[in-house]
Measured scan of single mutants.
Amino acid sequence: GNIFIKNLHPDIDNKALYDTFSVFGDILSSKIATDENGKSKGFGFVHFEEEGAAKEAIDALNGMLLNGQEIYVAP
């Protein structure tokens, strides 16, 4: 299952995104959108192997604080 994450703190990188979401299941890919200079655009995507893991991550993390910013997590 794919999920979309927005309002990410600029310091959150691909590894931090992966580490945050990997507790919910096996991740096939995770990516933070960046500009041409490699600076985070504040949103990203995680693709879980299983749909159930994606739903669990959405339920658990939507509205949670990550590096002091409330993140939005949705399908």
Score class of each variant (00 low, 15 high):
residue 50 E to A: 13
residue 24 F to S: 02
residue 32 I to R: 05
residue 2 N to V: 00
residue 36 E to G: 14
residue 56 E to D: 14
residue 46 V to E: 01
residue 53 A to S: 13
residue 29 S to P: 01
residue 1 G to W: 03
residue 35 D to S: 15
residue 15 K to T: 05
residue 40 S to Y: 07
residue 71 I to A: 09
residue 19 D to F: 09
residue 48 F to N: 00
residue 11 D to S: 11
residue 73 V to S: 05
residue 7 N to R: 15
residue 16 A to D: 06
residue 8 L to I: 14
residue 63 G to T: 09
residue 71 I to G: 00
residue 31 K to S: 03
residue 3 I to H: 02
residue 70 E to I: 13
residue 16 A to I: 06
residue 35 D to G: 14
residue 6 K to Y: 02
residue 12 I to C: 05
residue 56 E to L: 11
residue 51 E to F: 04
residue 66 L to K: 06
residue 63 G to P: 02
residue 70 E to A: 12
residue 30 S to M: 03
residue 4 F to H: 02
residue 72 Y to W: 04
residue 39 K to G: 13
residue 19 D to T: 15
residue 15 K to I: 05
residue 26 D to Y: 10
residue 14 N to I: 06
residue 36 E to H: 14
residue 37 N to C: 11
residue 33 A to S: 09
residue 44 G to P: 00
residue 2 N to F: 00
residue 7 N to P: 07
residue 28 L to F: 07
residue 59 D to E: 15
residue 75 P to F: 15
residue 23 V to Q: 06
residue 74 A to F: 03
residue 44 G to D: 00
residue 21 F to C: 11
residue 33 A to Y: 01
residue 43 F to L: 02
residue 42 G to Y: 08
residue 69 Q to I: 11
residue 45 F to M: 03
residue 12 I to L: 08
residue 70 E to V: 11
residue 18 Y to Q: 08
residue 48 F to V: 02
residue 67 N to L: 08
residue 8 L to A: 04
residue 43 F to N: 01
residue 37 N to V: 13
residue 53 A to E: 10
residue 35 D to N: 13
residue 66 L to I: 15
residue 51 E to N: 11
residue 42 G to P: 08
residue 44 G to R: 00
residue 22 S to D: 08
residue 16 A to V: 09
residue 24 F to H: 04
residue 20 T to C: 11
residue 43 F to D: 00
residue 4 F to M: 00
residue 57 A to R: 01
residue 52 G to I: 15
residue 9 H to R: 09
residue 20 T to V: 07
residue 30 S to K: 01
residue 4 F to G: 00
residue 57 A to H: 00
residue 75 P to S: 14
residue 49 E to L: 09
residue 39 K to R: 11
residue 57 A to F: 04
residue 12 I to P: 01
residue 26 D to P: 07
residue 60 A to I: 15
residue 47 H to N: 03
residue 44 G to K: 00
residue 34 T to H: 04
residue 46 V to I: 08
residue 7 N to D: 05
residue 19 D to I: 11
residue 4 F to L: 02
residue 43 F to C: 03
residue 39 K to N: 12
residue 26 D to N: 12
residue 72 Y to S: 05
residue 1 G to D: 03
residue 27 I to G: 02
residue 33 A to T: 06
residue 28 L to M: 12
residue 71 I to D: 02
residue 56 E to P: 06
residue 42 G to S: 14
residue 18 Y to S: 09
residue 37 N to Y: 10
residue 56 E to R: 06
residue 2 N to P: 00
residue 5 I to C: 07
residue 22 S to N: 13
